[in-house]
Each structure stands twice: as structure tokens, then as C-alpha cells.
Design a binder for these strands. Sequence first.
DNA 1: AAAAGCCCCTGGATGC
DNA 2: TGCATCCAGGGGCTTT
Length: 270
Amino acid sequence: MPELPEVEVTRLSFVNRIAGAKVLSLHMGKPLRWPLGCAPQGLAGRTVRGVRRRGKYLLIDLDRGLLLLHLGMSGSLSFAAHMPAAGVHDHFDLVTTKGTLRLNDPRRFGAVVYAESEDASEAVKLLGRLGVEPLSDDFDVDRFHAGLKRRKAAIKQVLLAGNVVVGVGNIYACESLFRAGINPKTAAGKISRARYDKLAEAIRDILAAAIVQGGSTLRDFIAVNGQSGYFQQTYFVYDRAGVPCRNCSAPVRQIKQGQRSTFYCAVCQR
DNA sequence: AAAAGCCCCTGGATGC
DNA sequence: TGCATCCAGGGGCTTT
């Protein structure tokens, strides 16, 4: 579920509370996407230095090593000084001196992986192929445009792949392409520099606005503070199949691209 | 190298 | 009410 804004809102909600805490214990429930990659008891005594985000991954820095955490489709984190007993979908608890960080993930597409450093193979395997951060200064339109010149795949799927720009999932890909007026089926290499300008701006604006609004609330997403997001109230196309386009009133279309639903307006997006 | 398909898994919505 | 089917915020891996 969680795309970049939801992951970032999650990070912001507990980073200040967990920083400086000492790890007391670590507990795993049912298997997640990958094994943890170390003995859980081996992390006891380490200190949490901070929490960073890279794409949709959260990086929990310890005084030695780090935990890479991914929420998959249905994962959510909570942090509390007094955590209730684990439920059936709670599959990871990091118990610290300041509270417990818990991953609830019904579908278990999420992951928690330990790596000795960001350069260790376990980390490189997950982070190495990731594209540029859309909210950083590195997200440069010239490179965005140039890097996609020879790509024949549909722009929607190029965005989703995450090896050019990270963090743009199904919702924000649909919304960004609508904002930029680009048909999601257009080959990435056939889009002009001027339109990439609009697309980059749309991605930045929409992601930033979604973070400010607390992310999207879908089936599973609730931020750590228990507040749900409000971004979904401003969808223009996502999950609006057949509903009149907010801009031109033509019915929003739903198609499949690479086993994922795409929503778009055939009039506004050409 | 790039593109397309295939999975992993559970639960909610819909339809008969 | 019960049961089958479809669909869902991701993304690594395998196959073309």
C-alpha cells in the first residue's frame, strides 16, 4: 500500500521517539518476504542511531549495522512505549528502551533484513537498483528525459519499476500522469522534454502534498500516531473507474498494464 | 539490456 | 447463509 508519502509519514512519526534507544530484543512472527539474515538476539544492546528512507525502504541505523524494512502492500508500523500482545498479523517487534516498533503485515510481502552496512551484499541487493529520489535535488529533468530516450515501455510502467525514479507507486503514478496530461500507455522514449518537465513537477508536487496531508488511507494504512491520511480525498483518477473526470467529465478509464490497474482520462491525457 | 509475466499472501467485496 | 471468484499501495526473479 504504502508508497513514498506513506513511508515518509511513517518514518516521521517515530524517528524522534526511537532515536538513541537501546535494543532490548527482537522478535519475528511468521516469515516475511526474506529471512532476517542474523540471529535476532545478536542485536540486543545495540543503539538506534536514526531512521532514514530510501525509496519505499526504511533504514534503521544501529551503532553497528542497520535494518532494512519494507512495508510491502499491506504493512504498517506502530511504535508505543507499552505495546499490546502480538496479534496474528504482527510479524516483527523491535523492543527498545524507549518503546516497541511493530510491523503488522497481513499479506507478508513486507520484509525486515539485517545488513552489516549499506555496502554489504544484503543491502546492495535491495537498494542497489533504485532510481533517484523524486524529492531530492538529484531529480533533474534533463537526466530524467535523457535516461528514458530509448525506452519503449509505457511511461506508467517505467515509473512503477522504480529504477529511474523511486517511490512512485500505483496511485501516485496514475495521479502524476493525470496532472501532467500524459497518457499512461505512451512509450517513455516518445515523450518530449517539455512534457517530462511537467511530469517531474507533477510527481514532486503530488508526493510533497501527500506527505503534508499524512499520506493516503487505504485498507491497511494507518500512521503510527493512529491518524489516517487524507490524500485519498483528492484523487483525480485512481480508483475512479467510470466516474466523470474532475476536469472534463469524460468517464475515467481503467485498464491493465503489467497486471496492475491503471486509471486515466482519455480526453485529458494524450 | 530491456520488457513482459509470475509469484509471494491474506482479506474484503461481489456475485451466484 | 455459504462458497467461489476477483481484486488490492510492491517488487524481485525468471523467462522472452
